[in-house]
Amino acid sequence: MARSLWTGSISFGLVNVPVALFSAVRDLDVHFRQLHEKDGAPIETRRFCSEEDKEVPFEAVAHGYEEDGKKQVVLTDEDLAAAAPRKTRTIDIEAFVDLEDVDPMYFDHPSFLAPVGDAEGNLRAYRLLVKVLASTDRAALGRFVLRSKEYLVLVRVRDDRLALTTLLFHDEVRPTKGIDTGGRKPAKAQLDATVKLVEALAVDWDPESYEDHYRERLLEVIERKRKGRKIVAPESSSGGREGPPPDIMEALKASLERARSGEGFDLAAEDDDGSDGADGLEDLSREELYERAQKENVPGRSSMSRKDLIDALSD
């Protein structure tokens, strides 16, 4: 189990449950290090005082606050610590709110809470909170302090555990004023046709079916380079910045026909690495083909026969 980011307790009313906080997101990004081109040695960053041109040890670094037209104010770590005078080891639940009232835009960083220790009373209190939140569509709203910063948080249930997410504050979400939201109310026939097209292209949300192509391609590039092979950048497309179709109704109708006949649309973004060509598809079982179709996100794959899958995959 990963290391906890924080330990403390969650309290609602007078019930206090010791918990530990674990991130619910793992960093799978491909990270690079800065190297010195000449000798390949890693680059280190060192702090220097811009005035004295001398190296500054970490303990001698303070926090400068600047505001237009005012003199800089310098705060030490201790000064800053004074800004978090509230209890730092407690998640205080202030209210229970309806989950549907919280716009997902406010969700920031997700994590899990797990009970600490084996004390029977604590484990039961944790279970109780899970049970109660799972049985309503409500979430607990509270505040807590992590690394001296206070967060507004929502606690709900996910995978039978308490899941905590930090929330943005209301003034961190910009107003939509000034965003061009298009023209007049659309004509009914056009809207009906768009709704039909949306429904014709609808599938169940299946998060497992999407893979990070960018990460895969980046690792591929690294592997190729490691073997001393040449990296050819794909033609950078300047296209794609298209206007609306000349005849919207015509485009909607034609799209709907194609979607219904299962013809599909030539989505240039799909399968652009060419590594999964048609070669050998004939030798694969339906299960194996289905797995590939899943990987490539072939729409309607679950109802396809073996032959349909081969056709779809060799497109």
Binding site: K38, E44, A60, V173
Partner: peptide, 28 residues
């Protein structure tokens, strides 16, 4: 659509309040 409003500070040298610069050094 979103922007962090967390109060941000610059790293400064505690002795003279001058800005701290991050300089790159070859470790070798």
């Amino acid at each position: 659509a979103t922007e962090s409003k967390t109060v941000s500070f610059r790293e400064v040298h505690i002795d003279d309040g001058a800005h701290v610069e991050h300089r790159r050094f070859c470790s070798k």
